[in-house]
Amino acid sequence: MDFLSKNLPYLLAGISVGGQYALIAIGYTMVYGILRLINFAHGDIFTVAGLILIYATTILPLYISIPLTLVATVALGYIVERAAYKPLRNAPRMSVMISAIGVSYLLQNLALYITGGLAQTYPAIPFISNTISVGPATTKVVTVITPILTIILVIALMQLIGHTKIGMAMRAVANDFETSRLMGIKVDTVISMTFIIGSFLAAVGSILYFANYPSVIPTSGAMPGLKAFVAAVFGGIGSIPGAVIGAFIIGISENIIKGLGWTTFSDAFTFALLIIVLLVKPTGLFGEKATDKV
């Protein structure tokens, strides 16, 4: 019991952070599945979502500003895809990746300009910022809500991908870009839809993630972004359940490492895990077997 009461807070925090990583990781894995692109800007979209909520709450009540944040983030994701990735559809993959890095740089600098480089205080969201006690540990409501909400959203997403027309189109495009275009699928619409879903989930993740932190700075999203990417690779890039499981594993292990007093290495651990996975099983836990085309 003593062991449990000591470690429960870390475990809870881990599950919660894992859920937030999962929401970001889905955006990475879906985009990679379709475009074979590491969307380096995804972490920054996540930060911008946090900032939008901060600015929205200064003039609007919460019940308007939260939906507004979701809509604005989705719009941002859509614009980024149209402006920075679509013109490079036929360019080499490296160019698109460089473009993604450029967008990330732009969004960070834009955030820096608008915030003036100062940390912006994140508003306390009633209910989810309240504290509750789980067994011997006290924590915020958000910690408990996150995993539940994550799982609900993931199930909804799986239904969307498995049973709707647009979901079928997504799977087709991920499988074979050219053929699905020949079959009359509007590839550009499907890709935009992917970015819209990814940004929506990132916005939800951002609200849950930043509710745990007092403030947002322009580079707040970089680390969770990279970690979510690692989660996506760990679970097998292109696979949504894989990304979610990977994110939970990373979130929990990271917090257990913090609990053991090795905080310096909690970030390093994630990347070490990435390198081990890439070497031992490059396709990740649930990844499809890639055939090397010569």
């Binding site: 074979r36 590491i38 993959r93 490296m94 990746m97 990279l226 990417f229 690692v230 690779v233 970030d267 390093a268 994630t270 990347f271 070490a272 990435l274 390198i275 890439l278 070497l279 490059p282």
Partner: peptide, 15 residues
């Protein structure tokens, strides 16, 4: 590793 996996792995090592 190849292309983007190499990019992420080297980025990870730097971190």
């Amino acid at each position: 590793l190849k292309s983007d996996y190499l990019a992420i792995a080297t980025l990870g090592f730097a971190e």
